[in-house]
Design a protein around this nucleic acid. Structure first.
Lengths: 347, 347
DNA sequence: TTGTAAGCGTTATCAA
DNA sequence: TTGATAACGCTTACAA
């Protein structure tokens, strides 16, 4: 299978390897006749460019890495779509890895990016315990752009959303229509800055209204299960059930609503639900879901643009840090509580 | 930034480069003391393995490629999850590209896989016009496994589903509860074998019942829009509206239902809807959606296993071709038509 | 506009 | 159990 190489093409075309390389990358530097000749030889011999060799020679991969929690969450899938859009013209190959919210997997992925000498890495969040590796990537000339949040480290590039403010907005709304006892079903706490910021927003929102924080009202789910059943069971068995539930994702909200309905609890008449992400089907649910719309694709698109525009000495420039707006979308899954005092019913 | 190489580690540890390489890949061939020494030097100097160089030297990339229409479709996202599961232990880096149902993009992606000398490629379907390139990949030692369908070419490996039979099942069900005038809203026809097979199933199902094929009842959508509005407009303006609609995906079904509801048409009382894919939220919709459950993740998992197990001379072996079962899931979006004769109402 | 030649950092073969 | 050495196929100064 000994494939045809630049050397062989050169020989067959009666030119040097350098010229063949130029035909590939800077054809304008080559005399037209030479160009034609070389291209013809390539065609006739079915020459296949060897990216591995080229990348190796340049000491830097032409590929870019993307690290997301999981493609199964449609919000991250959208980010992936945005990334692909940005990468479209100069179609850089894309390495995609998923952490499944496990810091050690994320670490392995980062390590791979390093060993591959990738052109850059996009991360939809990252575990603080891996900050050292991220720094090492940057130190080795591999730029990282953090998506979906604004990392504490001010030296990191990012295109994020304000998770804190987004949740404050949602809670302000729930407060404004009369709720006082609000539960939250959030993502994994330990491995996600996003969840930490969201939790803080929840606590501050309560505090700003003089409502004491009740840990029984806050549930953290693992990454993969639709936790409706368990969440609802726990929340309804409380001495005083919540009148509203803030869910960390629309999928979570859906499973909570389903479980609630199964128990004869009406949404939003008995309990209000608010989601997060604004999944594409959320407007079509019954009731249509009130949610926080996140510019998932846009984050990906902009993050990749950042990466592609970054100069070689990006390390010496101030990092680009962008925070995109979210939009609170009011639909019909939230309503005032039956009375101002608490649970509409006893379970 | 001149990084530390195997050569330098060798020098520092007082051994040869070959020995250092052995420490990396076959430590059992190295004397314990040597091993320790080398590892220590690596640690102390923060050695970073250079995958590019290694792959280049081996003349084959350690990475694997995945080509899907789009990660935005949750069914393909699930396939991606399955692939990552299979790839977990030997965590081969994953190149992910999306065709967005455009043959020329698919072609570009395939070309990239070739130029990268990837270890193998998984494709969630492929456009027949690119069959030549797929063959060229195989000829160059890059195995391809087709997912989501059984390609006509009997030499291609695959882990698919029987799109034809799946649709026959769905239509048989609709017939069995009394429908005779059934519309179909399918994916892009030209670029997808899947859609072709599904259309054939639709036509054969009608024919087997002696029902003439009415092209007005069959709509093909572009890849990206939720086509509910247009589809419903066209179907309801027919002289005789359908009593049931088969949708090529649950997302399509959702948008059709939404549009129908907006016009005061009840589902399933006035019109029945059947989806395809069994999206994770479909059971939670109102009404819960009857759909064809597809083993999306399993296809990915098995396909990747195939790829990883394939011997170097896979070309000389008979291809592995597997067809996975789909499951018809009956929920509540389909009901008998109001009468046996046709439209329940005039629009 | 073209050619020469020196890398790039690993792996693999063969011999010791 | 280890070492020498020759690839691997491209890019890139630099020179012509």
């Amino acid at each position: 299978m000994s494939s045809i190489t630049v050397q062989k093409v050169a020989k067959l075309a009666g030119v040097s390897a350098a010229t063949v390389s130029r035909c590939l990358h800077s054809p304008h530097l080559v005399r037209e006749a030479t160009l034609q000749k070389v291209r013809q030889v390539m065609r006739e011999n079915n020459y296949i460019y060897n990216i591995m060799a080229a990348d190796f020679s340049r000491r830097r991969s032409s590929a870019v890495g993307v690290i997301i929690p999981t493609p199964a969450a449609s919000a991250f899938a959208q980010t992936l779509v945005g990334i692909q859009e940005a990468t479209f013209e100069r179609n850089a190959p894309l390495f995609v890895g998923s952490t499944h919210y496990r810091p050690e997997l994320e670490r392995g992925l980062l390590r791979q990016c390093l060993e591959h000498r990738l052109g850059g890495v996009l991360m939809a969040g990252f575990d603080p315990s891996n900050a050292d590796l991220v720094r090492e990537l940057q130190a080795n000339g591999i730029a990282c752009v953090i998506l979906w949040e604004k990392p504490d480290d001010p030296l990191l590039h990012c295109v994020g959303i304000d998770n804190y403010q987004s949740v404050r907005n949602a809670l302000d709304y729930l407060f404004s229509i009369g709720h006082r006892r609000i539960a939250a079903v959030l993502g994994p706490l330990e491995t996600s800055n996003r969840t930490r910021h969201r939790l803080q927003a929840y606590r501050d929102a309560l505090e700003s209204r003089g409502i004491p924080y009740d840990p029984e009202l806050v549930l953290f789910k693992g990454p993969f299960l639709l936790p409706g059943k368990e969440a609802v069971t726990r929340l309804l068995s409380l001495r005083e059930a919540p009148t509203a539930i803030f869910a960390g994702s629309d999928l979570t909200a859906v499973s909570i609503i389903s479980e609630l309905k199964g128990r004869g609890v009406r949404v939003p008449e008995d309990i209000s639900i608010c989601g997060f992400d604004d999944n594409e089907v959320s407007a079509y649910l019954t009731p249509p879901l009130t949610s926080v719309r996140v510019p998932s694709a846009k984050m990906g698109r902009l993050g990749m643009s950042f990466l592609l525009e970054l100069p070689a000495d990006f390390d010496r420039l101030p990092p680009r840090r962008l925070l995109l707006d979210t939009e609170f979308v009011i639909r019909r899954s939230c309503a005032p509580p039956v009375d101002g005092t608490g649970a509409p019913f006893q379970s």
